Amino acid sequence: MEFISPAVIIILGCVTLLLFLQWKNLRGPPCIGGWIPWIGAGFEFGKAPLEFIEKARIKYGPIFTVLAMGTRMTFVTEEEGMNVFLKSKEVNFELAVQNPVYRTASIPKNIFLKLHEKLYVMMKGKMGTFNLYQFTGQLTEELHKQLENLGTHGTMDLNNLVRHLLYPVTVNVLFKKGLFPTNERKIREFHQHFQAYDEGFEYGSQLPERLLRNWSKSKNWLLALFEKNIPDIKTYKSAKDHSQTIMQDILDLLEMETNEQMSPNYGLLLLWASLSNAVPVTFWTLAFILSHPNIHRTILEGISSVFGTTDVEPPLHS
């Protein structure tokens, strides 16, 4: 009887396992991993995520999976694939966002699942097509104030300009009028922490918080800001019509469901959801308008036909 060494048995076992995993993954997208268990492609992905994703798209096609830090992340990079994904009956939004919501806002899964449907119905009713007009006056008033504070002279990076306009407007309209700081130091502090939180959101939604010290610091700063101001937000009354803000409606629902301790966490989630897309959309819209003089002129004519003309001609370039 021939003797087979333990080393050979181990090697054969590993080869068999690899072949099995490859066979098992034939129906799935290509999977990019690594030689180190759990970490996978985490180091390479973490160095330059966008570059890593683009190289993977070129090499493996529009749909691929990345194994990093114990997490499988499947990327869909073309419009056709996104349409198929979003229309699939197998996709469950609530289940899909449980972990990201827990990591980024520290809202436990059981509480998120319990409240999500009720919050969705409330938000849809408050900000639906037929009620959205109610925010127009508040937004216009707040925007005018911010524009007046900027003055009529000087230059500013367009991205910073958009943030300087939208941050205070959003906070004052959705949470409580006057909540956004007016002190220059505190304004810079808010900008610094929200921008760090926003830019690191994708990493924070997937990776352990202990690996993202700066992002975690900004997240906790924002949570502390809301925790400090929740009492004032709850008692705030509009001087004009005593209408409630979106955050006040959320607080009422949390109180009904005996989950008031989650108020700062839902405040952080609302803040991110309201600004994460608004800032880049506004930036690129303005960049497009300012880059096309004819479109810029047409828009100014339309504004003048409603609000009248002004002696100050806005510049065509930012």
Score class of each variant (00 low, 15 high):
K177L: 07
D157C: 09
G204V: 05
A239M: 05
D241K: 01
Y197H: 09
L222E: 10
S205M: 06
I246P: 02
L165Y: 05
V173R: 03
T152D: 15
Q248H: 00
W221Q: 10
E255T: 10
F175W: 03
T155K: 08
Y167I: 15
P168A: 09
S243H: 07
N172C: 07
E255W: 00
L179K: 00
V162M: 12
Q192W: 06
S205Y: 02
S243R: 09
L158D: 08
L207A: 13
Y197F: 13
T152V: 10
T245I: 01
E209C: 05
G178L: 02
L179N: 02
E209T: 11
L254G: 06
F190S: 08
G154V: 11
L150W: 07
D252R: 08
L211N: 08
M247T: 06
L207I: 13
L222C: 07
L253I: 12
L223Y: 04
K234C: 02
T182F: 02
G154I: 10
K219Q: 13
M256Y: 05
L207R: 12
T245Q: 01
T182I: 10
N214H: 10
L150F: 12
M247W: 00
S238T: 03
K237Y: 03
N183K: 10
E189M: 10
L161I: 04
T235F: 00
V162Y: 04
E184W: 03
K186N: 14
G151Q: 13
A239C: 02
D252W: 03
D198F: 01
R213T: 15
L251R: 04
H193K: 06
Y236T: 00
R210E: 14
P181M: 11
E255M: 05
Y197V: 04
G200T: 07
L165C: 10
I250R: 08
L165D: 11
T152Q: 11
